[in-house]
Nucleic acid binder design. Structure first.
Length: 875
RNA sequence: GGGAGUAUAGCUCAGUUGGUUUAGAGCAUCUGCCUUACAAGCAGAGGGUCAUAGGUUCGACUCCUAUUACUCCCACCA
């Protein structure tokens, strides 16, 4: 006893156990004859630090892994990080800037050297943080998306898709990020509502300076790129414009009027200015009507030489200035407030600029089809299922994927340009040369220039479940054959398109196999006000700080207690506190048990009964836990385990077997209690790995390599669980006596007498008599035929009990209470009778239901008559 | 504009093919306890016309329809 602290201090045990687990290499997996259970971690950005979303995500993965390991599976959880090209490049650029180095002054090689140096020194902190959380990742397998073999896979896949004609290069309108100076994919554009203005500009007729057409636009700064004005051919207001030219305000350039049904006659003025270079729709109209294109922007969003006097200005400064100039020249009809959506870059949050440029694209349509089928047929299951809709919607209308990025950090595109501007695609420069020489026989390796661009980060992540096991480079190796397809993928719904969908496509395309069997979508962690936790809002607690305060176990429990799959998690620190308190509760149960002095004395009947009951109760719990796990209802499962341990084990079981003050416990009961406690710790272990491991080692002497995380999960049997139902009634009996004490202010120490009116519960009460007397602190109950004078009556189900007390009995209050109950039961009887006298009910309802109603009626009548008798005796 | 989801106690959520004393839990609240494992605790209590209106049914929190509110996703209306 003395050696156990009175409070459980998580800090003192968590790192100790994690180190031991590592030391014994318990997380490492190699293929063997067991069934594999594989999870690949959604690789966090190598620049990332642990945030609440990760905590939730990784905790769920850890719970599943630990549970499956205890179920006898060969568990392999592969950790790793993503090179995150834009994010990392931006980070390194900023760090260099702080040192006074500009990226533009560096060569590609120099920059990459800095980037790698940063990665080696500072990258992947998050993986260390996962250890604090208790994650049982196979660290020997830690991968990075730019590891040599991973890069090789990416290049191989690129070449293969190119050969198949699924990758092509071309000039297209793409989403340009003027801050990161790169193209991004459609998925990386986030649309946000914005209060902006709608400007009405005057375009004068070239041949009649007294007339003008009013054009509404939200982007007046793009007029320098105008090459037409478009109206709907059915719009009679504008039919006079046929063959006319208009003068672009300020610019004073003549542009044609074109007619296209694309224009909405009801919006704005019905006339639309066309800027083919800076709007996707205008671009399409430009192609259709063979219009000229004028690019007015530099890559960084400033105006280029086509911007006339505005050259060099930022696009938004230019807007302000041009609005002033338009107004000064009386070319602005009016300005209206207008709410619209603008696309922001996911990474840099700056407004995206549509830009025509040469990029690489991946065709999605053919790959999308089988990927959709795999989910629709249920080969891959989504939890919750509702995300199938989102998935289908995207898959049915997927656009080609822009995969080139104008960055240096990433997988460089394996395309090589010949002096004649043709190009070849090959995994290495040497192979490229061979191909090149079929075009230009005299071509040398020095003549070949590799494409400057790198690939979208997701172009490597989509291979993750395969490339982690080298399944692309060596498709028949033992590991990929054993671990793939992986079992479960745990991720947020925000990357369903970026990542989940594409992994499914890649798996089916390159391996003809799905990448995982189940996808568990977590919710988003929100603060108390319902806002998404984010760095910019500063509303996210520091996870490591939380772990410090409540222990990893406490925080894990806190995260899981209220996060059903797919539902957002309104985070509240008090959940973690609850988790910490739970650890402490368990710790104290241990202290109680270890404090007993054990002797070879006879086992009390109450203990014997409690042990039998508890084993049946455990069986009931295990059944429901297995059911919950099969449906990924982890939080339900944890809640069940929580009540099971706190209420059933601590409040009921331990209280029953607890010997009287300073008396010893019999060894039989003690050993059973230890055994039960051990099972409970196993049941809880996946959720709270540290405290359970600690308790496990206190319960008995252990071999050096005996760890709870390697034991088997308790199995449920198909035995009868009759005692659990019986005990529920006994609990009610005890609680009602305690409640009586409470309401009458009788000390729990005062032993009470108890008379029970004889009925069919007599056997049950007699059976559990030893427990009732102990926990309710009453004398052995006496069975009687009638109400006892001078006592208060209690009703448990249909059993009436009489407790003789003299204190605090207020007759009027008792009468009032009884009258209320009588009224309630009378009403209840009326409603049951209504049902039973309804022929349709009696004829149509299942017999079971009807019999139940009859039983209800009977019970009610018993109660009612008892209440009436009670009332009579009081008056 | 299209689609999906949610609505149950003050808060967060269960309620599994419609039927078990006329809805459960945790937190919070209230009452009484420093009862010899635990005040990070113990024993109790209060609290809900299951969003609104209809419909199907012998019977609806549960199924259907409409309405309202919120959330999310998708979409090129300047």
């Amino acid at each position: 006893m003395a050696e156990l602290e009175s409070k459980y201090i998580a800090k003192n045990v968590e790192s100790k156990w994690y180190e031991k687990w590592l030391e014994k290499n318990l997380f490492h997996s190699v293929p063997d004859e067991r069934t594999p259970y594989t999870i690949v971690i959604p690789p966090p950005n190598v620049t990332g630090v642990l945030h609440m979303g990760h905590m939730l995500n990784e905790t769920i993965q850890d719970v599943l892994c630990r549970k499956e390991r205890m179920n006898g599976k060969n568990v392999c959880w592969v950790p790793g990080t993503d090179h995150a090209s834009i994010a990392t490049e931006a980070k390194v650029v900023n760090l260099l800037k702080e040192k006074g180095i500009n990226k533009t002054d560096l060569t590609r090689e120099e920059f990459l050297k800095h980037a790698w140096q940063w990665k080696e020194e500072k990258g992947g902190i998050i993986l260390q943080q996962l250890k604090t959380l208790g994650c049982c990742c196979d660290w020997q397998r830690t991968k990075f998306t730019m590891d040599e073999d991973m890069s090789e896979s990416v290049i191989k896949v690129f070449c293969s898709l190119y050969e198949k004609g699924l990758i092509y290069r071309g000039v297209r309108m793409v989403n340009w990020d003027p801050k990161a100076l790169t193209a991004v994919s459609d998925e990386e554009v986030i649309y946000k509502d914005q209060h902006s203005k709608l400007y009405y500009l005057r375009y004068y007729l070239a041949d009649d300076k007294s007339k003008y057409v009013i054009v509404a636009t939200t982007r007046p700064e793009t007029i320098m790129g105008d090459t037409a004005v478009c109206v709907n051919p059915n719009d009679e207001r504008f039919s006079y414009l046929k063959g006319k030219k208009l003068i672009v305000p300020i610019v004073n350039r003549e542009v044609p009027v074109v007619f296209d049904e694309y224009v909405d006659m009801t919006f704005g003025t019905g006339a639309l200015k066309i800027t083919p270079c800076h709007d996707i729709n205008d671009y399409n109209i430009g192609i259709k009507h063979k219009l000229q294109s004028i690019n007015i922007f530099n890559d960084n969003g400033t105006l280029n030489e086509n911007g006339l006097q505005y050259k060099g200005m930022d696009r938004f400064d230019c807007r302000k200035k041009i609005v002033e100039d338009l107004q000064a020249n009386n070319l602005m009809e009016k300005v209206e407030d207008y709410d619209n959506k603008i696309g922001l870059s996911e990474r840099t949050s700056v407004p995206i600029e549509p830009k025509l440029s040469m990029q690489w694209f991946c065709k999605m349509k053919d790959m999308a089809k089988p990927a959709l089928e795999a989910v629709e047929k249920g080969e891959i299951k989504f939890h919750p299922e509702k995300f199938i809709n989102t998935y289908r919607h995207w898959m049915e209308d997927t656009k080609d994927w822009c995969i080139s990025r104008q960055l240096w950090w990433g997988h460089r595109i394996p395309a090589y340009y010949l002096p004649n501007n043709e190009f070849v695609v090959a995994p290495t420069k040497e192979e490229a040369l061979k191909k090149a020489q079929t075009i230009l026989p005299n071509c040398t390796i020095e003549d070949l220039k590799q494409d400057e661009d790198v690939l979208d980060t997701w172009f490597s992540s989509w291979l993750w479940p395969m490339s982690c096991f080298n399944g692309i480079n060596d498709p028949n190796n033992e590991e990929i054959n054993y671990y793939y397809p992986t079992s479960d993928l745990i991720t947020g719904p925000d990357i369903i398109f970026f990542w989940v969908a594409r992994m499914i496509m890649a798996g089916l395309e390159f391996r003809k196999q799905i990448p995982f069997k189940n996808v568990y979508f977590t919710g988003i962690v929100r603060d108390k006000l319902g806002r998404k936790m984010s760095k910019t809002l500063g509303n996210s607690p520091d996870p490591l700080n939380l772990i410090d305060l409540y222990g990893a176990d406490g925080v894990r429990m806190g995260m899981l207690m209220s996060s059903p799959a797919g539902n957002d998690l309104p985070f509240d620190e008090s959940y973690c506190e609850q988790g910490r308190n739970f650890s402490n509760k368990i710790w104290n149960a241990l202290r109680l048990l270890k404090g007993f002095s054990v002797e070879d004395i006879p086992q009390p009947e109450s203990s014997k009964l409690a042990i039998e009951w508890f084993k049946q109760r455990m069986n009931v719990m295990l059944l429901s836990i297995e059911d919950d796990f099969s449906k990924y209802r982890l939080s339900e499962s944890l809640k069940n385990i929580y009540t099971f341990i706190w209420d059933d084990f601590c409040s009921w079981f331990l209280e029953i077997i607890k010997p009287e003050y300073q008396k010893p416990i019999d060894s039989q009961t003690y050993n059973s209690a230890i055994e039960i406690f051990e099972s409970l710790m196993k049941i809880l272990h996946p959720f709270m790995p540290f405290v359970t491991e600690e308790i496990y080692h206190h319960l008995r002497e252990r071999q050096e390599d005996d760890f709870i995380m390697n034991t088997s999960y308790p199995k449920c049997s198909q035995e009868e669980n009759k005692m659990d139902e019986e005990f529920a009634f006994i609990k009610e009996v005890i609680s009602s006596i305690r409640a009586l004490r409470n309401s009458k202010g009788i000390s729990p120490k005062q032993v009470l007498q108890c008379f029970i009116k004889e009925n069919d519960s007599k056997d049950l009460i007699t059976k559990y008599e030893s427990i009732i007397t102990k926990l309710a602190n009453i004398e052995k109950p006496t069975f009687v035929k009638d109400k006892q004078e001078g006592s208060v009556s209690l009703m448990v189900r249909t059993t009436e009990m009489f407790i003789p007390i003299t204190q605090n009995v207020n007759k009027d209050e008792e009468i009032k209470k009884i009258n209320e109950q009588i009224k309630y039961y009378e009403g209840f009887i009326v409603s049951i009778n209504k049902k039973l006298s309804n022929e349709k009910f009696v004829n149509n309802a299942p017999e079971k239901v009807v019999a139940l109603e009859r039983k209800k009626l009977e019970d009610c009548e018993t109660k009612l008559s008892a209440l009436k008798q009670e009332l009579f005796s009081l008056q």
